[in-house]
Structures are given as structure tokens and as C-alpha cells.
Design a protein around this nucleic acid. Structure first.
Lengths: 220, 220, 220, 220
DNA sequence: GATGAATGAGCCTTCATTCAT
DNA sequence: GATGAATGAAGGCTCATTCAT
């Protein structure tokens, strides 16, 4: 993960690296455990075992289970943010290109892992009763939403489409999340490519001249 | 839904209720507790307190916590199924009417309660690691999916639309689930009507002559 | 059981019969449950189920579990006492006949049931920590011991044997109890007849002219 | 027995004991608790309190109550086996010496404690309904029984006695167990020496030239 | 830093007892 | 008398947290 490398290099001034490396190691273990056990059944021992470390070390690095889980969520949220940010920066200036980049980023094999999807799911399930989680879960990234809505508005104004940009943006966002849920709930054959195709079908419904089921229309 | 009518009210506080009435009372309490505490933090004592009954009674009627939660899920799944079944039977023969009825049913105030949405969310979060939950959660109702896909196919063949019916159906389904997730995650103002409007926006994108943001076009 | 019939007819003056009949029914069920579950795992529900009666009835008739178990022990102790009393009264006047009768009585098929042996075992296991049980268990029947010791003394004085009558009596008693324990602990083939033969082997060791492995020597 | 030497004393109250030492400490506490409370009333808290440790530690070391009790039984069975094995190895080659050693070993003050007798009793009481216990309780040590029977056979062939060796062995075994039971059930004055004398009385009945009430005849 | 034994709060579960019907 | 729902105390078990080594 680019993010973990960055985290490691950031304050690398001193031998802090082992410290952060341990943290990332434990967080990655937490993600795996959340995926396989679910939130309610995940224990610190499971995490320690998954990380190949000793039981007591988890509290040493994260002070509490509560905190470990929160940091795991923050880690995934940051990872997610960096992912679409990078994708966006690599895309062309056309809003269609940018929308395509954002939607595609959600299915980037680095992000859209079975384990990570499951872990997200776990957090969603708990978010309702935990304000701290809620702030970091999915649809609450205001920057993302504003950006996406702006891109939809540009599609309308620049490319001659019609409709309420906020609602179109929200619809596409909902489709992505719904598809993510399906990927969890539905048996294997329903993979990343079919998921992406489903989302692109939705995009094509709104912007038929710029998208089709396979993604951004190259001939647009 | 008739199933849940009037339960949890004060008058049934004590002493000898018919077996099924108590079960429903406890299940409704479980839904409320799941909504407010989340899955991981829900205890039998919470459920008993929410129902105004002793905690021993929960095990008396449900044998185990595990089982109580499973029965709660089954109860909600059945309630959900009945809800769209009824809505469908009341709709006209036109596939557009039936699709409108199905989508609207998902936002029926009886079903689409804050508590119920939260409870569903809790189960989704755990479903990944529990096959028994997974079978009953959301996108796995084969009958529903087949039906919905058939209706989309009819829209195409009867009303001159284009596209892959399976993928359109899946997209609409994903949009509904995504919107449900948003309703949980997003603060209050995002209510049932806005949620329904979002889903209808999606339907309108696929079947513009038969739907708009407010629902089924009356003049179609 | 003769004893249960007697209990039933004793105060049969009025319709007390159903009352005592129920008690005996529950006690017999308790014996079966003790035998199959052991003391620690026997519950009132088990007893009720084994008796084919309702749960609440046990407390109605016996006031408490503690009391039910005590009464069961008293019932078995009384049954045991009657058994050897009757056997003794049917035996001839010779001390050898009486000893033979007493030893044989312990393996009377009515008394020496698999269930009853197991139940006795359960009570023995608990007796150490319950004075009330201890008084009624096995070797504490003073009347029996005095009697048996007297008979051994007669064997010595009348039939020319040697030894300490108290100790011989105690040895025979111990052999009976040890054999009972073995019958519980050892797999099936070790039945009543082999058990009796073992005890008779012991008697024959002390009184060889009057006993052999098969019991009282007929030609003595 | 070396195995149990010095355990349960004050100095090992707290903090980091080698794994096995803690296990033995807890097992010894379990024996004491079984003796004073009986099987049915023994709780993990009792055991923890008796050991001066927290109750959580019991499950930490033994995983479950069930397992703690089983391990306690195994510990006592092994202790018992070692006891007679050692006694046998110290005895002379004459079968009479060896039988005397085996019978005496059963009343070795290290083994034949009030607590241990009570604990054995508790297990016997439960053994009927627990195959795992049954295998380890008393009369089922095939090696012991075979050995003992062989020694009785030697007494017959070498020293001119008569009788069925299997039955004599079983009788002596039964006497030992019966006497053990009596030691539990009967009030104090009935101590180890009287118990041993009773068993020796039995041995003397079968092998009068080699045993008397006080044990192995020295002049044989 | 790292380890894992030790602690104790909290939860699920069992079950004797009560009691309305 | 009989039934079985209801209660609540008590116990086993889990597990986050602490801490001596």
C-alpha cells in the first residue's frame, strides 16, 4: 500500500519506523480479522494472532481496543481518500474523464479487496450507534460529495445533459455503495468487473454519450 | 405491517401473554436495541429492559442470544417480503406500475423506520462472517431479483427501452441499498422522501418516459 | 415395588392415594434422572419430563429440589431396609442362613437395579459434604451393623470360627459396597450374579464350612 | 508424592509462576473444594478462592470447568498409579510381599488423605453418567487388576492356597473400595489404621499363613 | 520494546422458585 | 390440583486491560 509506505517515511526522522511499521502491521491484521470474524466477534487476541505478535502488544501500541478500531477506520478512510485523489489527478480535464476516474477508483484492486470490503461493512454496521465512526464512513466525505456534485453539474452545463446534479451525484454514490454491499453479500462470481459494469450502467443511464457499460466511452 | 401492529406498547407489560405475542414483543425490542446500541453492544439485558421484561424470559422464549438475533432477522426478512408482495398485488399490470410499486414499497413508512434501517445495517455488518445471516440479507432474495429483472425485461420489450435487463435491475437494487445505507449514515434532513426521490431519479434515467424524480409518471 | 404399593395403601382412607401416588411417581423419576444424568446435572425439569408431568408440579409436591432429593434418598433407604428385613424374616434361625439372606438381599433384582445403583452412587458422592445424606447412606445403618456383627459373633461362638466379629462384619460390608461400586464402574458383563459370587467368595473365606462361591452351602 | 509436594502454600500467592506450578496449585485447590463442597456445589470461584487466585485464571489455565475437573481426576489417577508402582518396586519378590505392598499403598498417608478420599468419592458419584470419568475411576485400571490377579494366582500356585484368583483379587479390590467409602461416610474415629486392618482381615481370610489383621505376617 | 500471566467486569446461560390462570 | 410463563440469583466464560519480568 502506498499509504503505509508514506506513513512509514513521513516521520522517518528517527528510528520511528519500527514503531509505525508495527502500527500498520496491527491495523492490517485488524482488517483481516474484522473481515473474517465480523466486528462483534473480533478480539484483541485474534488481532495479535493474525499479526503474529503477542497479546499485550496491541494495547501497548493502541492503548485500547476502541482506539485500535478507530485508527483502523481512519487508516482505511485515509487510504480511500488518497486512492481517489490520485486517480483524479491522473485523469484528464473533462468532467466525464474525472467522473470515470472516480468511479473506477472505487474498484481499484488495491482498495476493493474482499477483506477491505468486509471491514468497511463491519464499520457501517456499527456506525449507526457510534458518532465517531459515522463521521468517517462512506457518504460523509463532504469534499468528495461536493466535488462529485460539481462534476455532474459540469456534465450538464458543458455536455448538454439534464437533471438535478445533486441528485444524480447521490444516485451514483448510492449505486457504488449498494454494489459494494452486494459484493459482500453475494457469492463469488459477482466480482469487481461485474460490479464496475453495474455502476457504469448507471453512469451511462445519466450520461449516455460519455459512458457505457464498459466505462468511459473512448469515442466520446 | 399487520405483523408488528401495536406491539411493545405498555398494556402488555406483565403476566402470561400468548406465546407468539411475547416473541414478537421481544423481537421488536431487539430491533430497537440493535438500532440504538449496534450489534456488538446489544445485550440480552438491554433487550429485556427495552421490552419491560426480565432477562430470563428471553432465553425462555428464544433459547439463546444467537437464536434471538437470527429470529429477529427472519422476522424482518419476512416482514420485508410481505411488504413488497402486498404492494405488488395492489399495482396495475403495467411493468412500470409494478416497478414503481416495488421501489415505493422499500420506503413504506411501516418498513422504512429509522430503527429498522439501523437493525438491517447491523445485520449486514455481521452477515459477511455468518452464512446464516447472509442468506437472509438483502440482495439474496432470488425470487425478488428474478421478478425485478423480469419487469425490467418487459419495460424493454413492451415499452421500447434498451439495455441489459439484469444489469438495470441490479443497478436499481444497488441504488436502493445504497440509499438505505445513506439514510443511516447521513444526518436527519435526508429523509424518506429524498431517498425515494434519489431512487426514482435512477429509475427515470433508465425509463425516462415512465418515471421522473417524483415517481411513476402519471401521464405515461 | 412392594414399598410403593404399601405407601399407596397405607393412608388410603381418603383420596390421598393420588397424592402419594404422585410423590412416588416423582421419586421414581428422580431415581432414573439421577442415574442417567448424575447428581450435579439433574434438574427439576428433567425429573418432571421423566415423570411425564409438568414442571411446576415438582415444587408443589416437594417444596424444594433439596427436599425432593432428600425424600428420594429416604425412600431408597427405607426400601433398602425393608428389603433386608423381609429377607431376614424369611430365613432360618441359623446365623449362616441369616447372613446368607442378608448378603443375598443386597443383590435382589428389585433393589439392585442399574438405576438404583447409580442413584446410590450419586448420593454417596454428595454425602461427604451433606450431613443429612451421610446419615442415610450405606454403612451408617446402626441397626443393620449391630445385627450383622451379632450374626458374625454367633458364627464364631456356635460354629467354631475364629476372628474379630466386628472386623469380619465390616469386611463383608465393605466388600458389598465395593462390589456395588464396581457394578457401576465396570462395563456390563459384570452383572448381579458375578457380584454376588464375589461377595460369597468373601463370606466363604471367613466361614468356609457354611459358604462357597455360589452362596450358602446346602450341605453344611 | 513428589508430584504434589508443598503446593498450595502461601508463598506462591501472586505473580508469574511457571505454567505447570500454577496448574498443580489450582488442581490441589480443586481437590480441597471438591472435598468440602461436593461435586455439585463446587464452583470455579470456590476453586479460585481456595487457591488465592482470581477466577479468571482458572479458565486461562484450564479453558473450562469441565476440563479442570477432568484434569484433576487425571492428576489423582496418575498420582495413585505412581503410588502403587513405587510401593511395588520397593517390595520383595514374594507375591505375599507384593500384595501386602499394594494393599498398604492404598492407605499411604500421602494418598489416603481425607480430602483426596472425598474427591475420589465425588468423581465416583459422577462417573456413572460420564464415560470420561468412568475410564479413570478406580476399578478400571486394567494393568493394576491384571497384576493383582497374577499375584493371587502365584499365592495359590506357590504357597498352596485354593480358590479362583480372579475372584479373590476382585474381592480384595472391592474390600479396599468399600473401606474407602466407609472412611468417607463414617465419622472420624474410623481412621486409616482401622481401615487397613479391615482390608488385612480380608487378606488374612484368603491367605491366613501370610497375613493377619495387622498386615503381612513377618514370620511367614 | 515485547511477552504472556493475572485480574475482574460484564455477559450469556441455567435453573430453582413463584404464581396467575 | 395442574400448568407453564415469568422471575432473578448464581455460575461459567470471555476478554479488555494491567503489569511483572
Amino acid at each position: 500500500m502506498a499509504i503505509s509506505a508514506d506513513l512509514g517515511t513521513a516521520d522517518m526522522a528517527r528510528r520511528k519506523l519500527p514503531r509505525d511499521a508495527r502500527r500498520v502491521q496491527l491495523i492490517e491484521a485488524t482488517i483481516r480479522v474484522l473481515a473474517s470474524q465480523g466486528y462483534a466477534r473480533s478480539t484483541l487476541s485474534d488481532v495479535a494472532r493474525a499479526a503474529g505478535l503477542s497479546h499485550g502488544l496491541v494495547n501497548f501500541h493502541f492503548l485500547s481496543k476502541e482506539n485500535l478500531l478507530l485508527e483502523t477506520l481512519l487508516y482505511m478512510a485515509e487510504e480511500y481518500r488518497q486512492n481517489w485523489t490520485v486517480a483524479l489527478s491522473l485523469a484528464g480535464p473533462d468532467p466525464a474523464d474525472q467522473i470515470g476516474a472516480l468511479l473506477g477508483a472505487d474498484f481499484n484492486p488495491h482498495i476493493c479487496t474482499a477483506d477491505r470490503l468486509s471491514a468497511w461493512c463491519s464499520f457501517w454496521g456499527e456506525a449507526q450507534s457510534r458518532p465517531l465512526y459515522q463521521q468517517r464512513c462512506g457518504a460523509n466525505d463532504a469534499a468528495y460529495n461536493t466535488l462529485f456534485e460539481g462534476l455532474c453539474a459540469q456534465m450538464i452545463s458543458h455536455h448538454g445533459y439534464h437533471g438535478n446534479p445533486a441528485r444524480i451525484a447521490r444516485t451514483l454514490r448510492a449505486a457504488v455503495e449498494g454494489v459494494w454491499l452486494d459484493m459482500m453479500t453475494t457469492p463469488p462470481p459477482y466480482g469487481r468487473s461485474e460490479a464496475l459494469a453495474t455502476v457504469m450502467t448507471c453512469a451511462a443511464a445519466f450520461f449516455p454519450r460519455h459512458f457505457d457499460e464498459t466505462g468511459r466511452r473512448t469515442t466520446a
